[in-house]
Design a protein around this nucleic acid. Structure first.
Lengths: 337, 337
DNA sequence: TTGTACGCGTTATCAG
DNA sequence: CTGATAACGCGTACAA
């Protein structure tokens, strides 16, 4: 059915080598030869078979992006940037979801069960220290960690400074005159880096202003979704005296929290100020619009993809860490009363 | 470096044929043999090379999902379901974005420039009649169209009944006593099926209640995003008398419209009722929560993936059309005044 | 039930 | 600059 390199060679009366040269744009081919071959290619409608090429070269041109759930706005935004950045470098992207399942994460880190169909992997899902420890950087396929995993320095790693980001968000609430500040997003089992660091930044900011321990005003959230934020905020509002501000570890948590405040008959920001982290577009249109810490997703995506490409070229590269910039964005949800 | 089938065969003192049988779970292998081979496999840490297997079998186990932008909630939710459904059938999913670029759509429909690295494609982006006409179903790789393209019956097609959905949404607004109903989402150039059908359903519902032509209350929207909804709604509110309801062709348009109404100093639903289509999670937490037409995304994803799998098995299948169910969901944004 | 040998479509090596 | 030919790793018809 489909024409092969050999078919073209036969038709053009040349060797497959010559055809291959023309197809892959090899320099030293006479113009005459090139035209003759090109004509045969066009006549037969020949298209190179990427699988055969891959078998020979060992490169598929495929990257794998692993996220917990692609329909979480932060991750779909990241995916968008990653796919674009990868495209510019000639890669296509396949997506895997872990669904917060540890076993699945472990499995994907080992290369998806089978030997990889991809040249490298961007891992943006959670992973505990233990799961990473099982992975041997020297033997596994090229891997870049995104946003987490500060524990393990054997891997390339693109992230933000979570301690500072959380500190900035909390300080912003303090600057607005809030004093009973709650935090939503610590993990039930503290095994991940990001929530730990955000909690650290949160507490640090409070300490700097002479505010004591705040365990009673902290709430865990398993999945950083709207429902988690809603539940946590509802629980916090039952306390007396109730908090006058909430720092949410993700914008999605914040969206849930905002709704919870209103369902409790209170107002944002008048009664409770709310700030998140991520800067998803949703927060720019919500009522009130959401104050947040904006992460430079394009930077993260570009850095991760180009670093992965470099590591595919040279797997012996020493592991490096890249910190993406973040900016505090004040919107309506933390305005002064 | 990596062990091959032949390495295992040498080590187990058997032929490659036998090893291959064991690996691919062939029935008729003696238990003794199986164990001997399995031991060699484990010792060498052998993993089959999917590329070589693909070259031989012609199947990559990869599906391509094409969307306009993955970070649009409707599409990321669809992607989530598609990836899950594909996983159950042993497929992985790569994602391509068209970014509303016609040339790119055309290119992807032709198989991404190169011959396909995937077994089949789910096309959920827009495409005009012309773009599809260039594609020959018999020669291209297996293709399923999602949600659009009712023009062309040469392809498998999974969609909802857009005319009825739009009719339901509009009727809901009429049932709530609204009389000056606007519509946001027609296309500047009417080349796509979905907006045309929604406009048809919209007008049909108005006609049934004896309401005349409404061109003055229709607004186009190029990309169905929040910004488009905001701009269109703002423009509509300047009319006098102003509309008392807006039917948005997507939930995202509706989110932008809600914000626009409030920025204009008016209230939803008291002054303007708003309804969308899609049922994205965002609309369940927004203020007011968003009335909408819920599409059965899991059904769409499962149907599309299993149909694609079937078509990969048997490319000669006759094209078929699948209609996914939809349900009207009334929330706060269309409550009675 | 198992072994041998060939082909899948490329790229790379080595002559010429 | 171009031709012949050997890999790449696996599946399978054919033979035993």
């Amino acid at each position: 059915m489909a024409a092969t390199l050999r078919d073209v060679a036969d038709r053009a009366q040349v060797s497959v080598r010559t055809v291959s040269n023309v197809v892959s744009g090899y320099e030293h081919v006479s113009e005459k030869m090139r035209q003759r071959v090109q004509r045969a290619i066009d006549e037969l409608g020949y298209i190179p078979n990427p699988v055969a090429r891959t078998l020979r070269t060992g490169k598929t041109g495929l990257l794998s992006l692993v996220v917990p759930e692609i329909d979480v706005p932060y991750f779909s935004q990241l995916a968008r940037e990653v796919i674009d950045a990868a495209g510019h470098l000639g890669f296509q992207v396949m997506i895997d979801q872990t669904g917060h399942d540890h076993e699945r994460e472990r499995q994907l880190l080992r290369g998806g069960g089978r030997r990889n169909l991809f040249d490298g992997m961007l891992f943006a899902s959670l992973a505990t220290r233990d799961e990473l420890r099982d992975v041997n950087p020297a033997r596994s396929s090229p891997l870049i960690l995104l946003g987490e995993h500060l524990f393990d320095r054997r891997f390339d790693h693109v992230a933000i400074d979570n301690v500072v980001a959380a500190h900035d968000a909390t300080s912003h609430l303090l600057d607005r005159g809030r004093t009973r500040i709650a935090a939503i997003g610590a993990q039930p089992k503290e095994s991940y880096a990001t929530p730990l660091q955000r909690t650290e930044g949160f507490r640090k900011a409070l300490r700097e202003r002479g505010l004591g321990p705040v365990n009673a005003l902290q709430r865990t959230a398993a999945h950083y979704g709207r429902a988690d934020g809603y539940a946590a905020a509802t629980s916090l509002l039952r306390k007396s005296p109730r908090p006058d501000a909430m720092f949410c570890y993700s914008d999605l948590l914040a969206m849930g929290a905002i709704r919870a405040v209103f369902d409790a008959g209170l107002r944002v920001p008048e009664d409770v100020a709310i700030i998140g982290i991520d800067d998803i577009e949703e927060g720019r249109y919500s009522r009130p619009s959401l104050s947040t810490v904006s992460l430079d997703t394009p930077f993260i995506a570009r850095t991760a993809v180009s670093r992965l490409a470099a590591r595919i070229e040279d797997p012996s590269l020493a592991a490096e860490e890249f910190i993406a910039p973040h900016t505090l964005i004040a919107r309506e949800s933390t305005e002064n009363r």
